[in-house]
């Protein structure tokens, strides 16, 4: 069940997007997200759609694989649609019991759902084409200015990459503990929600204990290998901007200018 999550997973392929610097991709994703909330009207909608389709095509990630990630947000989409549909004032089309559906509501709901879908698809292109390590490296480097206001940027990035490394180990461990408890007659399936939650206790307690023990061991192993924070650290794979990144930045900014221009026109 835990293995089915596709959001945030890396899809290995040989594409232009895979070769881009993670900082470029982070910036581009940010600009794309902003543009999603800036665009207005049909022309703007066409612009964001074309941009998204182009990027997905460039990424060489199968569309079906990407759409699977949307399953996780179906509920959020529904709630957003319903709220927009019923709570936007304007020209009434028809009335259902006490709620009236307006023309503006219909339009708002439609655009909001599209915005959210594009948002998820756009940001999943980022995670699908960037390895977790590159992503944390990119975040660390682009957030570096925050160091001046005492945000522990390096430490946060290190925590993220360690968390990513231990996810599969902890999943495996959960599986093991679950089987061990099942073998001794534990029941994780039956009962109502409260009972199910209660039956998770014998699973979570040993999992936490072992996670703490692992953290302790890992900290010791890191210290034994001379880890002492980000100061004076070099990198095996330092991030370097290349020509491709320059071109990507130009394209992204031109795209953003077009969206703004379409909004004004």
């Amino acid at each position: 069940m835990l293995r089915d999550i596709t959001i945030g997973q890396y899809y290995p392929a040989e594409s232009v997007l895979h070769k881009l610097d993670p900082r470029t991709k982070l910036m581009a994703t940010l600009i794309y997200v902003v543009s999603l909330f800036v665009f207005r009207g049909l022309a703007g909608f066409v612009a964001v759609t074309v941009a998204l389709c182009l990027v997905i095509w460039l990424s060489k990630v199968p569309v079906g694989y990407m759409v699977k990630g949307l399953k996780a947000i179906v509920v959020i989409l529904l709630i957003t649609a319903v709220f927009n549909l019923f709570l936007t004032p304007g020209e009434t089309i028809f009335i259902v019991w006490k709620f009236k559906i307006t023309y503006e509501g219909l339009q708002n709901a439609g655009f909001m759902v599209i915005r959210l879908i594009y948002l998820i698809l756009g940001s999943s292109v980022l995670t699908l084409t960037t390895t977790p390590n590159q992503l944390t490296d990119g975040l660390e480097k682009s957030m570096k200015p925050l160091n001046k206001i005492h945000v522990p940027v390096h430490e946060i990035a290190m925590m993220m990459s360690i968390a990513l490394r231990f996810i599969p180990i902890l999943i495996e461990e959960t599986d093991k503990i679950m089987k061990a408890q099942l073998a001794r007659g534990a029941d994780f399936e039956s009962g109502n929600l409260l009972k199910k939650a209660k039956s998770m206790v014998p699973l979570l307690v040993p999992l936490f204990v072992s996670a703490f023990r692992r953290a302790n061991d890992l900290a010791m192993a890191m210290e034994a290998r001379c880890y002492h924070g980000g100061a004076g650290r070099t990198k095996m794979k330092p991030l370097k901007y290349r020509r491709l990144d320059g071109a990507a930045y130009i394209i992204v900014f031109v795209y953003f200018a077009i969206v703004i221009w379409l909004r004004a026109a």
Binding site: N133, I162, R165, A221, M222, Y227, R233, T234
Partner: peptide
């Protein structure tokens, strides 16, 4: 093992 790729883990010490 700290990194999620073998060679990056080996590089951890020299990086430090």
């Amino acid at each position: 093992i700290i990194a999620s790729v073998v060679e990056e883990d080996v590089a951890f010490g020299p990086e430090n």
